[in-house]
Design a protein around this nucleic acid. Structure first.
Lengths: 137, 137
DNA sequence: TATTACCCTACTAAATCTATAGGGTTAAAG
DNA sequence: CTTTAACCCTATAGATTTAGTAGGGTAATA
C-alpha cells in the first residue's frame, strides 16, 4: 500500500508544480486546497525540504516552492524520499541492500528473482515519469 | 515492503514446484528446508489451500501439493492471494476499487495517474511470470 | 514590533505484521 | 481398531508502523 505520507507529498508537489515557479505557497493553502491535515502536511513538507526538493521562505508571504523545474524532478527521487526504497525487499535494493537471514542462496531464491523484475519495472516507470508529466494532466 | 507472509508463501510454492507433482509434502519438511516458522507457515499454506492453489492430504504421509502445473500458476494470482491487491492505492484497483475521500477529481489526480502506471507495469510482470519460471532458476 | 508562517520535538491511538499457543479433526499404517 | 502423523482452526499478543495531534520555538517580513 502507498502510505498517506507519500500520497499527500505527491499531491503537494503537484500543487506547487501547477503554480508559478518560485512563488512560495503556505502550508495552510496547500492543506486547504488538497484536503490534507495541516500538521501532517507540515511534517511532510519538512521532509521534502530537507531532501532538497523544496525551498522555503519564512515570515509573512512565505511558504514552500520547488527548487527545480518540474520536468527535472523524477518520481524515482520523490518516491525514495517519501516512501523509502523502491525495492520491495532489501535483498534486491540498490541503495539499501541487506541479505536475507533465512536465505542460503540468493541465486536460487524465487522471491529474489521475482522482486528484481518488479524493482526494475518500477524503476523504469518512476524514471520516465517527471513531476511535470503528472502536473500537466 | 513485501510481507513475510508473501515471501514465505512464494518460497513454499517454489519448493513444491521443485518436487514431483502430486506428492504431498508435510508442513514440517517445508518449514525446515526453507527456514520458516512452522506455525506461521501452517497458516500461510492454509490460505493457499483455501484460495485453490494447493491441495492437501491428511494423515500419515500427508501434506500439501500443487493443484496445477507450475507453468499455469501466474504470479498475479499468487500475489493477490498472499499480498492482496496489486494496486498500491484503492482508486486504481481493478478488483477492489474505492474512491479516495479527499480527492475531488480522479482525472486530475497526480497520484492516481502515477499509480495506474505502476499498477499496469506490475500486472505485466506478474502476468508474464509463472511459478515454473521462478522454480527453474 | 506585531504577525505570519516555517521549524522541531514529543506523544498517542489505531492498525498491521509476525508470529505463538493450544487444542481439534482426519486418515493412513500397522 | 488403535496409534500417530499431519492437517485444521481459533485466539491472543508483542513489535512495529502509520497517521496523525499537541504544543511551543524561531525567523523574517510588513
Amino acid at each position: 500500500m502507498l502510505s498517506k505520507k507519500t500520497k499527500y507529498g505527491i499531491k503537494a508537489l503537484t500543487y506547487l508544480a501547477r503554480q508559478e515557479q518560485n512563488v512560495p505557497v503556505s502550508i495552510a493553502t496547500i492543506s486547504e486546497m488538497e484536503n490534507i491535515s495541516l500538521k501532517f502536511l507540515e511534517s511532510i513538507l519538512l521532509t521534502l525540504r530537507k531532501s532538497g526538493l523544496l525551498g522555503s521562505k519564512k515570515g509573512k508571504g512565505g511558504g514552500y516552492y520547488l527548487l527545480k523545474d518540474p520536468k527535472d524532478i523524477k518520481m524515482t527521487t520523490v518516491m525514495r524520499v517519501l516512501e523509502g526504497p523502491i525495492a520491495m525487499i532489501p535483498c534486491v535494493s540498490l541503495n539499501y541492500y541487506e541479505k536475507c537471514e533465512d536465505c542460503p542462496n540468493e541465486a536460487e531464491c524465487a522471491v529474489h528473482l521475482l522482486m528484481i523484475r518488479v524493482r526494475d519495472s518500477n524503476l523504469k516507470i518512476y524514471g520516465e515519469t517527471s513531476l511535470a508529466d503528472l502536473a500537466n494532466y
